[in-house]
Design a protein around this nucleic acid. Structure first.
Length: 665
RNA sequence: GCACUCGUAGCUCAAUUGGAUAGAGCAUCGGUCUUCGGAACCGAGGGUUAUAGGUUCGAAUCCUAUCGAGUGCACCA
């Protein structure tokens, strides 16, 4: 027997595209241009999918769009899968699948290990560069988005069959090591180091920073205060001048002055408080007096390290493993694993050659003592070697591209880095293309800021950045309180939990809540961090989806259903008796389409929205229709299969986001 | 000064990249409960998509101007 064409795909959209491609090929030169205009219907009343090709073709073909739509439909062969297409409005072609076809596809998906998602036919070798903290500085909220978005894309691309290598491009060669080394040589508490090396290093880092800042602020304060005075005068003069509403430049200047004054005042306040915090402490004050040149000397330590000074290099080798161990603890909690952790230090031996090669090719030129690549239409140069002879992160990034392309054979490199560095990446990518790699796909996957309720970067109440570990701790503590509170409200005695369960659930809900809150937003936008919203029991949260998943599992538990056996049970004919069931089947069959959309634009929020919609559909279905007590055995088994695959899609989808499910919560 | 990003419901955000009546969640108001987990479900109100023009069959999306917010601008990464 010949298999019908549609058994080879469970992707509804790509199947329709194939059919339209055939239909359009006699009409237009390049049918592929019009295939993206086939998309899910905007409104269920228009059917399941719609094709918007006719309108743009009206101009090309010089005929009314409705006539073209008619012509496309007459050429279109979808009888086996769809009801007769309808033409509506200016020339929309509306398509609705036959239930029989949907059920065939559905069966194929239920028995498929990958719930109907095929691997890419064109797998890419992708390096995903994300998280990338500076070692020895504790990780903070700033690292959250890169880590969470990066890990989600990592899992997504892998699942789609690409050859992914995740790389944590850590800062392990920067100025922070000079500070730590200086601290270690001058302020070490040996006992503390022996019990908790990273804690002590981190204390030393903060101490050296604080003392350096102290001296800098102390010398800078008079100037800062003078600036405030000057701005105050200028503002007074400007405000005294007669206000001409038409003079926009003057109005703008006035506003700029006010903003500058506010900023300068804040700076003075902050400086004074930092100075006071040192001077009010006898120990700190004494240390500050004893180390007036601390900032310069710390830089000297960095320079010595970079020149392979034996002592500093030994210290670096001593510190680094401890720092990495501490980092891994955080990654364990976030369930993130890297294939490689090649920090800046790894690329150091290559930098001199990178610069000389750029020079040889005439790309890099000397300017004001520094070696620079000038990119057209960019005023700022791309500095690959500073006037003092040191290399910059630009150089390291170029060496990194070289290594990834030549040694690891990457054809795509994704940088999950915040939006503020977009200019750097533009210059980097242009330079790389001019240099040796015009064919590598280099993408900056930029993302916005995590903000507090005040719409400024998220800080603690005292104004410090929030440490990532304490953030995770708080999430779990808050989640646990919610789980415990809910436990006491439960109606269903069977659903009661042990205290071990509660701890595990609190972890999955807490960490999942943080991740979901981050991923559900468009990555380019800034978003406001809000505990209550991300852990809320209702609404568009990880918890809601996790709860829907737990409810499905509860059906199987109560009914003593062997899900594996169920999947291969062919002793009955599937039926769809309710519109909600049909909606769920279509939604499930769209899983691959959604994953591809999410991957195409590197946007986990597309997947989040999809998972929420599935959970929402399931919750409505669960409320309105019975599974275990269905009218007859056929309906019951059909619904059980639907429940099984719904659960698998939710589990798989959440898994790709790095969010774990729980069978009971 | 230059460059980039953004402005959508009271709040937090979407909108398949130019498609049909701009959608969710929260909050508000109303409803559902003796059945598989109420961390639930159903419904209602709420919008001149910052403003003004323009482009076209069609604009939150594209172009221009204005207003407002943010970010980045040689030797930190």
């Amino acid at each position: 027997m010949v298999q019908p064409l549609w058994t080879i795909t469970m992707n509804l959209l790509s199947l329709l595209k194939q059919r339209f491609s055939t239909a359009l090929s006699g009409l237009v030169d390049s049918p592929t241009d019009y295939l993206p205009l086939i998309r899910p219907a905007g409104d269920p009343k228009f059917g399941d999918y719609q094709a918007n090709c006719a309108m743009p073709l009206a101009k090309v073909l010089g005929k009314p769009a409705k006539d073209i739509a008619g012509e496309i439909v007459s050429r279109l062969d979808v009888n086996d899968i769809c009801h007769p297409p309808e033409i509506a409005g200016p020339g929309f072609i509306n398509l609705k699948f036959k239930d029989e076809f949907l059920l065939q596809q559905f069966v194929a998906a239920t028995i498929d290990e990958r719930v109907g998602v095929e691997k890419s036919s064109n797998p890419q070798t992708v390096i995903i560069d994300y998280s990338s903290p500076n070692v020895a500085k504790p990780m903070h909220v700033g690292h959250l988005r890169s880590s969470v978005i990066g890990a989600a894309l990592d899992k997504l691309f892998r699942f789609l069959g690409h050859h992914v290598t995740s790389d944590n491009h850590i800062g392990d060669w920067g100025t922070q090591f000079g500070r730590i080394i200086y601290g270690y040589k001058n302020f070490l508490d040996e006992a503390a180091y022996n019990t908790n090396p990273v804690g002590e290093l981190s204390r030393l880092y903060r101490l050296v920073n604080q003392l350096s800042d102290y001296h800098e602020l102390k010398t800078g304060l008079p100037k800062l205060e003078a600036t405030v005075a000057e701005l105050t005068d200028n503002l007074a003069t400007a405000e005294a001048a007669p206000l001409d509403k038409k003079d926009k430049a003057a109005a703008q200047k006035l506003k700029d002055l006010r903003n500058a004054l506010t900023a300068a005042k804040e700076e003075v306040v902050s400086a004074k408080s930092k100075i006071a915090s040192v001077e009010s402490n006898a120990d700190l004050s004494a240390k500050a007096q004893a180390h007036p040149e601390i900032a310069r000397l710390a830089r000297v330590e960095t320079a010595k390290l970079h020149q392979n000074d034996a002592e500093n290099l030994a210290l670096w080798h001593k510190f680094l493993p401890e720092c990495l161990k501490a980092m891994d603890q955080v990654y364990d909690r976030l369930d993130i694993k890297f294939d490689m952790t090649l920090g800046e230090s790894y690329y150091q031996p290559m930098l001199a050659d990178v610069v000389s090669d750029l020079e040889k090719r005439g790309l890099a030129k000397e300017s004001q003592g520094a070696m620079c690549v000038f990119i057209e239409d960019n005023s700022a140069p791309f500095i690959v070697r500073k006037a003092d002879g040191a290399y910059t992160y630009a150089t390291t990034d170029l060496a990194t591209i070289q290594d990834r392309v030549e040694r690891l054979h990457a054809n795509t490199i994704l940088y999950v880095v915040d939006a503020r560095q977009s200019e750097h990446f533009q210059l980097l990518f242009k330079t790389a293309a001019l240099w040796k790699y015009p064919h590598a796909t280099l993408k900056h996957i930029s993302f916005g800021t995590v903000m507090g309720e005040d719409r400024k970067p998220y800080k603690t109440r005292s104004g410090d950045t929030v440490g990532l570990e304490s953030l995770l701790d708080e999430a779990v503590v808050r989640a646990k309180a919610i789980v415990e509170e809910n436990e006491s409200l439960k109606r269903d005695e069977d659903a009661k939990l042990s205290s071990d369960d509660i701890q595990l659930i609190a972890q999955r809900i807490g960490i999942g809540g943080i991740k979901y809150a981050d991923l559900k937003h468009h990555r380019e936008s800034d978003y406001v961090f809000n505990w209550d919203k991300m852990l809320a029991k209702k609404g568009d949260t990880a918890t809601y989806i996790q709860y829907a998943y737990a409810r499905v599992c509860s059906i199987f538990r109560k009914g003593n259903i062997d899900r594996e056996q169920l999947r291969h049970d062919k002793s009955f004919k599937l039926t769809l008796t309710e519109p909600l069931e049909r909606a769920m089947v279509i939604k499930i069959l769209r899983f691959e389409e959604i994953l591809e959309d999410a991957a195409a634009d590197y946007r986990p929020n597309i997947l989040c929205q999809y998972l929420f919609e599935i959970a929402d559909l399931f919750s409505a279905f669960f409320d309105q229709h019975h599974v275990l007590n269905a009218d007859n055995e056929t309906v019951k088994k059909s619904r059980l299969k639907l429940c099984d695959i719904t659960a698998r899609v939710m589990n798989q989808g959440l898994g790709l986001l790095g969010i774990e499910t729980i069978e009971q919560m």
